[in-house]
Write a protein that binds this DNA or RNA. Structure first.
Length: 512
RNA sequence: GACCCGGUAGCUCAGCUGGUAGAGCAGCGGCCUUUUAAGCCGUAGGUCGUGGGUUCGAGCCCCACCCGGGUCACCA
């Protein structure tokens, strides 16, 4: 070996394992076996084979393709396991069956993608196996995958030396997925959840739409945005922090039921429950109020729970299976009224009657940080978080938020200090936010202007006046119920996932 | 941002009060035609996160920094 092959990254310091695999690739090429194929016609999946063989000792010929996930060479025979989307199946290579081809099999490695042909049979120990008569190398694995070794103890699979560094598993999700079928199953169940939600909404006559991600003004939530710049227009654009204001423009336009599933972006911290981009579902239903929307949310969350549960199947194996005990499909989540709940927790008749000074001292008593610089709405919200939200465990609606906390919600019938708004909490985390949408453009302008004053007074999260949105509302917007649900959070709740990193295929990470 | 824990071979980890690195798996060579964490024999593989410092001598002690995890704070 006078010349070292070059790594894609330019480093010539190939580790010895990778060097060996390059050499095998060359050796195979010398035998006329290309390292990378073009296609393969599968006849079956691994999981079909047990039924196909039945009780017989010898079965039909099958053609399987997938990744080599285990390899046990014994001289003139080799046992391997092939993993495909359905599971894994044992392969048996024999020199007396394959002849010279066996020489090429000896250059295969753990992780190679291969296609095999051969009859099914049952080994001495009873395992359904393919006696390989033809084999094709479809992709040589030049970099060793971090396979652990698996052992079955008392019917449970125990993995040894598994790939377990959470950071590397997130950074190299492809490797995490390649060696962990259960991670594939988890993310597949997330897709099942999304599909169930679409089916649910489509079935109720909602139209799925796409609205701008790049927005000249951001709104619909209180958060710090990502800012970018359009060169030709020479103007700043913001990545959306919410879909809300565009979806309600569509309600004005006559699409009476719309929804969007997409990413929102918030330029804030990253932690166990926050990723800078996350998946938001928002849906709006004309002529409905927030009470009707609560019932819809109960059904939708139930449908999502059923979908995740059935997709995960053997969820009982999951260490966090307790999350599945909550009988969400039953619906009828408990409801807590914002004002009486907080007033009782604080020990006053009406927290909204407290002046700013009294609120501040209450917030300080509740261990809220940074009280001195907070606006009144912020103080109220912090107080509520500290006393009520963090204690909520099972899915619970909190209803009727103060008007000053809810610039896009209609005043509550019978108590204009409150709004017709609810949030859904579970495990102390917000899952959904919804209201009877404010459709009075005169009131909406006053609310925007109050927000603008807060912003001027230094509240970084307060919003701007969106004149175009007001113009739309002036044309006439029907009464509408609207809901936003963070799908990452919902999925985490339904699966018991502790870290948002494990609910997002490619979470945002600092560069290596 | 604060505090705590961690970063050693491709993977998972060990390394006692400081004496300049170990195991298993993966790899390579050999033996092995029903194995399954295959086995046996042999072998190779490491700027111990980075940069300073203390010391005759640092994976280990000190300082700074980088990266990750956890807890708290923040994120309606």
């Amino acid at each position: 070996m006078s010349e070292k092959p070059e790594l894609p990254d330019g480093s010539e310091d190939l580790n010895f394992v990778m060097r060996a695999r390059r050499e095998k690739l060359d050796a195979l090429a010398a035998k006329g076996v290309p390292g990378f194929g073009y296609s393969f016609q599968r006849s079956h999946l691994a999981s079909d084979c047990a039924e196909l063989l039945g009780d017989a000792e010898e079965g039909p010929v099958v053609r399987l393709a997938g990744r080599v996930v285990a390899w046990r060479a014994h001289g003139k025979t080799t046992f391997a396991h092939l993993g495909d989307p359905s599971g894994r199946l044992q392969l048996y290579f024999r020199r007396d069956v394959l002849g010279d081809v066996y020489d090429t099999v000896e250059y295969f490695d753990l992780g190679d993608v291969i296609g095999v042909t051969g009859p099914l049979f049952r080994t001495r120990s009873g395992e359904v196996t393919v006696r390989v008569t033809e084999v094709e190398l479809l992709a040589k694995s030049l970099r060793p995958l971090p396979f652990g070794k698996e052992e079955v103890v008392d019917g449970k699979t125990v993995r040894h030396s598994a790939f377990s560094d959470g950071e590397q598993r997130s950074r190299q999700r492809y490797a995490d997925l390649a060696v962990h079928p259960e991670v594939r199953a988890l993310f597949a169940s997330r897709s099942a959840m999304t599909r169930a939600i679409r089916t649910f909404l489509d079935g109720r006559g909602f139209l799925e739409v796409e609205t701008p991600v790049l927005q000249p003004l951001y709104g619909g939530a209180l958060a710090k945005p990502f800012v970018t710049h359009h060169n030709t227009l020479d103007m700043p654009l913001y990545l959306r922090i919410a879909d809300e204001l565009y979806l309600k423009r569509l309600i004005v336009g006559g699409f009476e039921r719309v929804y969007e599933i997409g990413h929102d972006f918030r330029n804030e911290g990253i932690d166990r429950t926050h990723n800078p981009e996350f998946t938001m579902l928002e849906f709006y239903q004309a002529y409905a109020d927030y009470v009707e929307m609560m019932v819809v949310v109960e059904s939708l969350v139930g449908a999502a729970a059923v979908a995740v549960r059935s997709a995960l199947g053997s969820a009982a194996d999951r260490p966090d299976a307790a999350a599945f005990d909550v009988s969400l499909e039953a619906g009828g989540f408990p409801r807590i009224e914002w004002l009486p709940a907080l007033s009782a927790a604080v020990g006053v008749v009406d927290v909204l009657a407290l002046d700013d000074g009294a609120l501040r001292s209450q917030a300080t008593r509740a261990n809220v940080q940074g009280v001195a610089t907070m606006s009144r709405p912020k103080l109220l919200d912090e107080l509520f978080q500290a006393h009520i939200e963090s204690a909520i465990d099972v899915p619970t609606f909190v209803v009727d938020y103060p008007l000053e906390l809810s610039p896009l919600a209609k005043p509550k019938r019978g108590n204009p200090a409150l709004t017709e708004r609810f949030e859904l909490f579970a495990r102390g985390k917000e899952l959904a936010n919804a209201f009877s949408e404010l459709n009075d453009p005169i009131d909406q302008r006053r609310r925007f202007e109050a927000q603008a004053r807060l912003k001027a007074d230094g509240d970084e999260e307060a919003t701007m006046v969106d004149e175009d949105y007001l113009r739309a509302m002036e044309y006439g917007m029907p009464p509408t119920g609207g809901v936003g649900i963070g799908l990452d959070r919902l999925f985490m709740y339904l699966t018991g996932t502790q870290h948002i990193r494990d609910a997002i295929l490619f979470p945002t990470m600092r560069p290596e």
